[in-house]
Design a binder for these strands. Structure first.
Lengths: 119, 119
DNA sequence: CCTACATATCAACTCCTGTTGAAACGTAGA
DNA sequence: TCTACGTTTCAACAGGAGTTGATATGTAGG
C-alpha cells in the first residue's frame, strides 16, 4: 500500500457515516449486509449512502456483490490490515518496546488462538 | 476509545501532511522530532504545520514537550493502538478466520519476539 | 534589556466534501 | 410488457477544512 491509498482510506474512515458502515461490516463478517440494511443501521438516506459506499469501495475498504435486487457489501479485511501495516511500518526501528501496545491491541482479538472473547 | 475520538483520529490521518507527520514520528521513536525538523521533513510551512500538530494532538495521536527553544513532538503509541482496536472491535464474531490478515499485518512488526526485521 | 530564533495564533480566502431532491438504472414478479 | 422495489447517478447548495501572510508568544544569548 502506498501513501495515496492510505490517505484515501483514512480520509474515508474520518467521516461519521462511513466509519459506522465499516464497523457494521467488520462486525457483520464476510456475509456482509445489503445497502438498504446499512442505510437503516447507519441512519442515512439511500442515495447519500451510495455516495459513501462508492468512496469506501474506491479506498479498498469494502467490496460489493449483487444478489438479486440487492447489492451486498462486506468489509475488505485485507485492505484494513494493509492500512494498519502502513501506519505502523518501521515503528520498531531500534526501539522494539515502543510499539508493543499496538500489537497488544490487536491481540485482544483472539483470532489466532481461536478462543471465544467479547463475551 | 469512543466513536467521536476515533472519528477525529481518522480524519486527522486522512490528510497528506498530517499522515506524513505521524509516520515520521512513528519511525523516529519515543525521542521524537522538533517542530522545525518536522516542517522540513513533511515539506510544509511552520505556521501551517502548527495547525496540523494541534489537530493531531487533539486527536490523541501525538504528544509534545518543550526542550529549550524547540518543541519536541512524538507519536502517542497508545493512542494509535486504541484506534486500531476500535476499528477491528468485534471483527471475529463467529468468524475467527476473517480477521487473521489484520493480525498478521501487525505481526510483521516483530516487537514481541525482539527479532530484527525490516533488514 | 535588546536581539535573534523557534513556534504558535489570527483573519481572510479558496477549495473540497457532504447533503438534498429529482431522476435514471437494473432486477424480479405478475 | 408493466409495475414495484432496490440502488445508483446527477446537479445544486451549504458548510467546513487547509493554505497563506502578518502578527504574537516564549525562550536563549549578548
Amino acid at each position: 500500500m502506498d501513501e495515496r491509498q492510505a490517505l484515501a482510506a483514512f480520509a474515508a474512515l474520518g467521516q461519521e457515516h462511513r466509519l459506522r458502515v465499516v464497523r457494521a461490516l467488520v462486525t457483520a463478517g464476510p456475509d456482509g449486509l445489503a445497502a438498504g440494511v446499512l442505510a437503516e443501521t447507519v441512519g442515512v438516506a439511500g442515495n447519500n449512502l451510495s455516495f459513501h459506499l462508492k468512496e469506501l469501495s474506491h479506498a479498498g475498504l469494502i467490496t460489493s456483490r449483487r444478489e438479486g435486487k440487492s447489492v451486498i457489501y462486506s468489509a475488505a479485511y485485507a485492505g484494513l490490515s494493509d492500512l494498519v501495516q502502513f501506519l505502523m511500518r518501521d515503528c520498531c526501528q531500534g526501539h522494539p518496546e515502543v510499539c508493543n501496545p499496538a500489537v497488544a491491541a490487536l491481540a485482544a482479538c483472539d483470532c489466532t488462538t481461536g478462543d471465544t472473547l467479547h463475551a
